[in-house]
Each structure stands twice: as structure tokens, then as C-alpha cells.
Design a protein around this nucleic acid. Structure first.
Length: 294
DNA sequence: ATGGCAGCGTCACGCTGA
């Protein structure tokens, strides 16, 4: 339920971070939680089977944990200060009878839940490896399944916030060397179209509401001195459905995290939402109605 | 065009990531 009472504004911080192993990065993540106190931190690439997830360490700093993991590869998790509602794991969390969802669900890349009535979907999109790899058509097929997944989620008319590591640079301004890299893996028309198709016309990459310029990256390769040369990509995104757009106050990439000792190769992305929106809160926001049709 | 760096599983190096 929405916590809208007595005209108080409810500020919500939602973050997304590919940590490249939650166990190796545990101290970094704990410190980040203590510093930023997000309401929800969505992790990707936890790289740990569920029985080995470091639950106690997060509970000790006041966070609840939901996870959907596997050994060595992939894995997603939701860390929240308050309990989440209706947690759904895998593509089958929405598409129980879809054979392709069952097959693609073998890789643990999807988890979603309700936070204050907002459906947050946390994704780790396959990388694809290279255009000649079998993993590339797998990635496109996965994005096709994501379209059906989000369509199913939308049936419930919940405000929608889709976050994660998308492994796609959507535009030239999202890539440090677009002339060289456009058309290669993570920057093909097919990947970009498939993701746009999956998200639909109305979802907005909230980072671009606040920052139109190039030069803002969320991932720097460990190799080739990419960090020192600032050769990055912006492949970690937060998308909002239309009804949430008026609530967005900021969206930032916490670049300094990438400069620490033994960092993840990704930096966290954080969105600050505030409802009801400042302009016309009386008209737009009710306890059980997020719609602002006008 | 290739490799580079990091994590995992399991102990020498291959697989995977992006």
C-alpha cells in the first residue's frame, strides 16, 4: 500500500548494481547500504547458489533479502529495508505456462516484487558474447521472452520500475567510442530494437530525464585500462512507467564505487522517487489509484 | 583480429563475463 498520509511526501531510493559476486563484494555492498540507506537495492550477478547467500550479513545491517541464484553464474537479489510484497522469481513468476520461459529460466536472471505498490523488476540481461556466438541469438530470444513477461506484469496495472544490467548501450551517447563499437555486441540494432519492443513505447530511461550528455558510464571493462582511460558504457538502466515519471527527482550513477579497491566492474545506479508529485498531488494520487489520466 | 582482467570451481586452468 502507498504510504500517503497527512500530506507527507514519501521519498523512495531504488538502486541497481551488478556486483560481480555478492560474496566477493560483500564488504563493498554493506558499506554502500550503510552510506546510502536505499529503500531497495537490486543486485545482479550474485554468483551464488541460494543456500550460500550471505543472508545474515545483510540482516545485521537492517536489510531483508530475497534472492534467485545459481552456482557460479548469474543470480539476482532484492535487498530492502521493509518487507516486499508478491515476490516473483524467474520468467515463470509471470509466465508459468510458457515453455520458453521455463527453458530460459534455467539461468537465474529475473526477480520482481512490490515496493509500496510499485512493481520493481530486477533484470540481468544475457551479454551475448559476440555476434557469432550461440549466446547472441539466446540474448535476442531472452529479450523476446522479456516482452511477454512485462506484458503479463502490466496486466495488473501496477506502476512499473524496471532496473538492471541490460548489457545494451542504447545510443551513441551511451558508449565511449560509438564509431568503433556500434554494430558490435551490446550495440546492435537487433538488441536495441528487441529491448525497446520489450519495454514498450511508454517506459522511460529515467537517467536521461536529468542528463542528456555523453560521458556517463555504468560499466568499465576490467581489461585494457578501461577505467583509467574512462572507456565505459552506460548499460545499467532504470526505466519507469509513465505514471511514475512525475515522481522522479534524480537519477545518478555512483561512479566512485568503481574506483575502489577490488571493485565490481559496474557502478550502482540510483533513482530518487517522491510521491505524491509536487505539482498536482490532490488530483493525481489516491490511496488505491496511481492513474493520472489527464 | 586478439587479448587484456576478474570470479568460480576446484587446485591448473578452462569457462564465463562484457
Amino acid at each position: 500500500m502507498l504510504n500517503v498520509t497527512l500530506g507527507l511526501r514519501n521519498t523512495v531510493l531504488i538502486a541497481s548494481w551488478n556486483v560481480n559476486s555478492v560474496r566477493t563484494r560483500l564488504e563493498h555492498v554493506l558499506a554502500w547500504l550503510e552510506t546510502h540507506q536505499p529503500d531497495l537495492l537490486c543486485l545482479q550477478e550474485t554468483k551464488v547458489d541460494d543456500p550460500l547467500f550471505p543472508v545474515a550479513a545483510f540482516e545485521a545491517v537492517g536489510y531483508q533479502v530475497n534472492f534467485h541464484g545459481q552456482k557460479s553464474y548469474n543470480g539476482v537479489a532484492l535487498l530492502s529495508r521493509e518487507p516486499l510484497d508478491d515476490v516473483r522469481s524467474g520468467f515463470c513468476g509471470e509466465l508459468a505456462n510458457d515453455p520458453e520461459a521455463v527453458e530460459l529460466g534455467e539461468q537465474k536472471r529475473v526477480i520482481s516484487a512490490l515496493l509500496d505498490g510499485v512493481r520493481v523488476v530486477n533484470l540481468y540481461v544475457p551479454n551475448g558474447s559476440s555476434l557469432s556466438s550461440d549466446k547472441y541469438p539466446y540474448k535476442l530470444r531472452w529479450l523476446g521472452c522479456l516482452k511477454r513477461y512485462l506484458e503479463a506484469a502490466r496486466q495488473r496495472d501496477e506502476p512499473l520500475c524496471v532496473v538492471g544490467d541490460f548489457n545494451i548501450g542504447m545510443e551513441a551517447r551511451d558508449i565511449h567510442d560509438p564509431d568503433r563499437l556500434t554494430g558490435g555486441i551490446m550495440a546492435t540494432d537487433a538488441e536495441r530494437s528487441a529491448l525497446k519492443e520489450a519495454l514498450g513505447e511508454t517506459m522511460v530511461d529515467v537517467f536521461r530525464m536529468f542528463e542528456p550528455d555523453a560521458g556517463h558510464w555504468s560499466w568499465w571493462d576490467y581489461r585494457s585500462g578501461a577505467w583509467n582511460r574512462d572507456n565505459g558504457w552506460r548499460i545499467d538502466h532504470i526505466y519507469l512507467s509513465e505514471d511514475l515519471l512525475p515522481t522522479a527527482r534524480s537519477c545518478v550513477i555512483d561512479k566512485q564505487e568503481r574506483g575502489k579497491e577490488q571493485p565490481s566492474d559496474h557502478a550502482p545506479v540510483v533513482v530518487d522517487l517522491c510521491w505524491p508529485p509536487a505539482d498536482d498531488e490532490e488530483e493525481s494520487w489516491g490511496d488505491d489509484d496511481w492513474g493520472s489520466e489527464a
